[in-house]
Structures are given as structure tokens and as C-alpha cells.
Design a protein around this nucleic acid. Structure first.
Lengths: 147, 147
DNA sequence: ACATTAGTTAAAGCCAACTTTAACTAATTG
DNA sequence: CAATTAGTTAAAGTTGGCTTTAACTAATGT
């Protein structure tokens, strides 16, 4: 029987992986300590990460981006490690995250509108087509934005 | 000459004003210490706020909501206190804030998409119309979301 | 008048999410 | 092979934005 050759996946050491993910080395170690990512170790004892880890980190950062805390991510990872029995729990968690995020999103949009209105008002003053005496409250009321 | 009666505006003491704005008393004092709001004092020495303060706090909270830090707000307030000479500076600051916020907003939308895709994927597994073996990466690729 | 509730100050404490430090070992480059 | 760069650990420090504490005074309800 001929020698079996295993297709070895690329190994990223922590520095390279940090550059790849946009995280810092210390942050990756911190995430590892928190159980959010589990790199492998080569024979010399150094960490290495794979492309699968890249995908996971990317996804994790998106979850974080939607407002999930480290603790929530920990819970998610713990459930994931338990296997398919926890799928509905994970689904429920993500749905809750989405619900909170959507609400936050609407508030952001409203703030955005107010900010833009204020910018327009300043612009109007600078360009001279809003009277010196017209206050912002007045101006806001003249637009039709619901509070 | 008859006694002059001045139409006195409503005065909110800190507790009432806190309830009105959704902030806590200590937070209002903190904002005051940072120079973000400047309540008046009645003869007895207690703070009071007016409806104009309410409008300002509302606007301030929207600015904060778009990602402005306390320090940026301080700068804004300082410029505002300097009068019309700083209008272009304020306009520029708000435009910068909007630019940063818009960028952040797009990232949020992208994270939202990924989160929703993941929820759909889990839902598919739960409902049984996504095979046990189909990974999320595969599923993602099967959708047409640009990275 | 007295109890309760609200307000005052300055200073210390808290929290999440990292970041920095220290003291070391491993790997790479000229 | 020496110098430089990268990685290792545990522990302490940082940051922003409040919150809590302590020790007090003022206002209000019965």
C-alpha cells in the first residue's frame, strides 16, 4: 500500500490570522480565553488557525456587529458545541438578537433623520435661505417628520 | 403703573426632568459637569430645567445616538456658545459625524443580512428543507449576497 | 412636628471589551 | 550565529460613560 498523502490545509499563525481578520493578537487570545474561538497547536506549541476559523470569526464579528455581547456569543458557542439538540435554542437566541437589533435600527434611522435635518438647517443659514431668527424647532416642525 | 406680570415658564426639578428625558439624575449632573447642559438655579439653590432644555437634551441624545462621543458633544456645545462665527465649524462637525454614521450604518445592514441568512438557515434545518449536511458557508454562497 | 421623599456635593466604583506590560521562548533573516 | 521578529503566559491597566456611596440639606404630606 502506497503512502497516504493528506491534503494539509493552510495554517495561519496568530499574527497572520490577526491581519486576516482585522483583530489583534491579544484580542484573539482574549476571545480564546472566553471560549469564542479554539485554535489548534502545532508540534512546537504555537497556535494556528485555519480557513474554517476565518469563516467563524467573520460570522462572529457580524453577530457582534448586531449588538451581541461576548457573553451571548459564549452562550451561542456553548450551545453549538452541544450539537443539533440545541438548534432551536440557537435559533431562538438569534431571533431575539434580531428583534433587538431591528428596534435599535429604527432608532438609529430616526437619529439619522434629525441629524440630517439639522445639517440642512445649518446649511440653510450658511447659504442664507433660512432667516437668522428661525430656530431649529420651528424648522423641524416645518418638515413633516413624525416624532 | 400696574405691576408687571411675567409669563413664567414651567420649571422642572431634576427628578421630574430626569423622568421627562429618560435620563437619571446622576446622569444629568454628569452631563452638566461635562458642560453639555446648563440648568438654572432657583432661589433656594436647587437646579431647574425648562422646556428649552428638554429640546436640547432630545437633540443631544439623537447626536449621541449617531455615535457622537461626550467629547465631541462638548466641542459642539463650546462652539455653539461662541455664537454664529462657529456655524461652519459646527456644520462641518455634523457632516463628519454623518459620514461616519452612514458608513457604520452600511456595516450594520450587512451584519443584519448575515444574521437573517443564518436564521433562515437554522429555520430550514428545523423545518427539514435544508439537508443535515449543508453547511452555512454553502448556503450563504447559494444566496446572492455580495461580500 | 415629624416622617418621607427629593435634592446637594465630591469622590469612588463599575462594566465590557479590550490593551498593555513583563518576562520569557521560538522562528526567521542577513 | 547574531539580531530581529513573532509567539508564549498571567496579570495589571485603560477607556468611556455612567452609577453608587456617603454625608449632608431642602421640600412635602399628614
Amino acid at each position: 500500500m502506497a503512502t497516504k498523502t493528506v491534503a494539509t490545509e493552510k495554517r495561519y499563525r496568530i499574527g497572520e490570522f490577526a491581519a486576516k481578520t482585522g483583530l489583534s493578537g491579544p484580542t484573539l487570545r482574549y476571545y480564546e480565553k472566553e471560549g469564542l474561538v479554539k485554535p489548534h497547536r502545532s508540534d512546537n506549541g504555537l497556535r494556528y488557525y485555519t480557513d474554517a476559523d476565518t469563516d467563524w470569526i467573520k460570522f462572529l464579528l457580524h453577530l457582534k456587529g448586531t449588538g451581541m455581547t461576548i457573553d451571548q456569543l459564549k452562550q451561542y458557542v456553548a450551545w453549538r458545541a452541544e450539537g443539533d439538540a440545541t438548534i432551536t435554542k440557537r435559533l431562538q437566541l438569534l431571533k431575539n438578537v434580531r428583534r433587538g437589533f431591528l428596534q435599535e435600527f429604527e432608532e438609529l434611522q430616526h437619529s439619522m433623520t434629525i441629524l440630517s435635518d439639522k445639517i440642512d438647517w445649518y446649511q440653510g443659514k450658511v447659504d442664507g435661505h433660512i432667516s437668522d431668527n428661525e430656530g431649529f424647532a420651528n424648522y423641524l416642525a416645518s418638515l413633516n417628520h413624525e416624532e
